[in-house]
Design a protein around this nucleic acid. Structure first.
Lengths: 197, 197
DNA sequence: GTTTTTGTACTGACCGGTCAGTCTAGATGT
DNA sequence: ACATCTAGACTGACCGGTCAGTACAAAAAC
């Protein structure tokens, strides 16, 4: 499974992911060329096509990889916590993720609400998976009475997800000098107030 | 001033704006071709270049036009109102604007946090103008004691702007069946809670 | 000796931008 | 009143460049 060959190949794929995510976050999918990606990854163009079927497939696998990671971190963050603490943990996990993978978060923000693109379906599905983790927490909280009974689970979950994204990325792009901890505090404060029964 | 010629030309420009905003909202700037825009507007490609210097300039003028309108509506909404009511009026104005110009809002959300694009500077400037109206209101509220004294004006203003955008567009894209009044109420409720002294 | 990567050259479709020429409303001349 | 002229608006074929994807022989890694 992890012999030298597959390890090396996985390495190349990883470098291509990193290069692609940075470039696409800056310029968008269409404006980013395969040559750009190969050059930034320090790899020949042929290597891109040896590892990925096409530019679109590369991007789709990138989305799967990135959001899969986020979903996993969401799951780990809420494990075993009571609803209101789990909610706070989710906010922290999201911001922490965005701080570590800022380019991916930026890319996500730019492509999330787009329609009529080949990979739109994929993104929609993945978004649903990530939000489902939030939704489970909110649902449990409403059921146990820890969260307001009139909270609409679906809306609250997607709002929480989207708001975290936009506030954090806005901060990263327009006020990069401020520490992310401030955002975290501000967001936690807001969520706490809104979650008040 | 409004003879047949200029009227006709203004008409063509308007049609090009409408076509461009829809296509760019769906596919993004780079993926949208000038031929697409011309076809959808029902004019020849040459007409696009007769009316606009380049694809980029067309987009920049589109941004100016769209955000200029939003800023004007913000100004009109807050005129003469005390801080807390003005804040609510701003939320209402933003959502109302997004409902009427949904494609433009979607476009804004997708292109707002992009870096390394020619028109980035323009967009940054325009965003600043719109947010400044919010900031004036928040500043007045903090000064008069109607809003919490520890509120960071710049952060609160851009957060309010971005949150309105993301929640409304998310609603438009993923839950279009839901009436806008719900979204407005939810958002107003949140803002009211956060604005509590 | 098999898998992965490289480097270079190539193709064909597509796209931003140009330009010579057409169309027409309305001003001008008679 | 009619014919003529003019300039602004528009057209669409065309050009030069770009880019996704292909081909493949040779090298490197394992």
């Amino acid at each position: 499974m992890t012999d030298g060959r597959t390890r090396r190949r996985e390495d190349t794929r990883q470098r291509l992911f990193v290069a692609a995510v940075e470039l696409i976050a800056e310029q968008g999918f269409s404006a980013t060329t395969v040559d750009d990606i190969a050059t930034r990854a320090g790899v020949a163009k042929g290597t891109v096509y040896y590892n990925f079927e096409s530019k679109t497939v590369l991007f789709e696998e990138l989305l799967r990889h990135g959001i899969g990671l986020l979903t996993a971190e969401f799951r780990a963050a809420v494990a075993g916590l009571p609803p209101r603490e789990a909610l706070a943990a989710l906010v922290r996990a999201e911001l922490d993720y965005i701080r570590r993978y800022r380019a991916f978060a930026q890319l996500l923000l730019s492509e999330m609400w787009r329609t009529n693109r080949e990979w739109q379906q994929t993104l929609r599905l993945l978004r649903g998976e990530a939000i489902e983790v939030i939704a489970e927490t909110v649902r449990a909280g409403v059921a146990s009475g820890d969260l307001p009974a009139d909270l609409d689970v679906r809306t609250a979950s997607s709002a929480l997800f989207g708001v975290g994204l936009v506030v954090a990325v806005d901060w990263l792009v327009f006020q990069p000098e401020r520490p992310i901890e401030d955002v975290q505090e501000a967001l936690l404060g807001i969520v706490r107030r809104v979650a008040q029964t």
